[in-house]
Design a protein around this nucleic acid. Structure first.
Lengths: 191, 191
DNA sequence: CAAGGAAGGTAGACAGTGTCTACTGGCATG
DNA sequence: CATGCCAGTAGACACTGTCTACCTTCCTTG
């Protein structure tokens, strides 16, 4: 079996996801993906007019998986907004550090700056959820502003941590202290 | 005149800096830099064994210029530590948004993750200055930890702002509200 | 002063890339 | 049966980074 006719379109994305998590983002050449999918180098063009659109589809999978992990970790939302935000932060940082290649791909400039590739449609709902939680955790604050600053903080921690700048400076074994520091800064001390 | 013999090594970096600020980071091919420097495509190899090392030298210029702008803006350090940090934050965000290509280059994964390319030597002093200022602004806090979280926050704001995710969400005209939010979060309200 | 040698740059080859175009095989519909 | 279209092939093109052989020019050293 091994999925002989599974629709080339989604199979290309599958191969790409597999490739970026195992080999890294530089392995995502159009021809290599086609090779591993068992088709000629011109075949992807039928479904993805350009290399960037294929990369965008792969990155979209990353956002979807991240969102899935997020809602799964929240479960029944009995916890306080503050604790839910902490959970989401942990999930995100863990995802970014265990799926380095995918995380790097998801936040590539040429992918996110484009309005046509439509990665915003997948990333914005995640942000909206955060805005909502921040609004309930800090009713007196400007929720989109604080949520934006907090998201930027989490993203920055993920980046600086991956290339080792921060564990050198803070000699911390994992990212938990940094995450706590950021959460306490933006949301106040957990009462 | 026009600097006929100005040392190819630094001339290549000059061309690269010029190129990345005007055309963007994707224009920094080895052969294009050589072309604009008026030499053959094999010439850079004498000074930079690999393309990445040339890119690293160009990025180093970026860090140096940023550090220069920082100390210039501080001037005589009569201001409070908190105000000095705010000044540095403004300078950094302004630099990141006016020199988009250079900022993107400076924080490329393949450049920063490498220990051999030695970009850390240029970026760490800047971080150390921030740690020192944070230590004086918040003597009770774990200075490297707070400084790390703050730096990550600034970096994240710079990134999310460049690709437009944040002005869509916060409908702010410039980055000042975000910067203030981040500073207030990590350093407390400016007394 | 002549010989030697190395520094510094040229030019071509090679494998690999993304995009474009012409083409083919099979399959459905008329 | 014929038509046309859909999906994928195959080759070309320009471009990339790296490697290697070569050439000049200039400085040193015997």
């Amino acid at each position: 079996m091994s999925e002989p006719k599974a629709g080339l379109r989604s199979r290309l994305v599958d191969v790409g996801v597999e490739l970026v998590t195992t080999e890294g983002v530089q392995a995502l050449s159009l021809r290599e993906i086609a090779r591993r999918a068992g088709v000629s180098h011109g075949a992807p063009r039928r479904y993805f007019p350009t290399h960037l659109e294929l990369l965008s589809a792969i990155a979209r999978r990353g956002f979807e998986e991240l969102a899935g992990k997020g809602v799964a970790a929240l479960g029944d939302d009995t916890a306080s907004p503050r604790e839910q935000i902490a959970t989401l932060g942990r999930v995100y940082l863990d995802f970014a550090l265990t799926h380095r290649g995918m995380h790097e791909l998801m936040f590539r400039h040429d992918l996110l700056e484009s309005n046509e590739l439509g990665l915003r449609d997948v990333s914005m709902p995640i942000f909206s959820l955060l805005v909502d939680l921040v609004g309930r955790a800090r009713p007196e604050a400007d929720a989109p502003l604080v949520a934006g600053a907090l998201l930027a903080n989490l993203y920055g921690i993920a980046q600086l941590w991956t290339w080792g700048s921060l564990q050198l400076a803070t000699d911390a074994a994992d990212f938990a202290p940094l995450l706590d520091t950021a959460l306490e800064a933006h949301l106040g001390r957990g009462e």
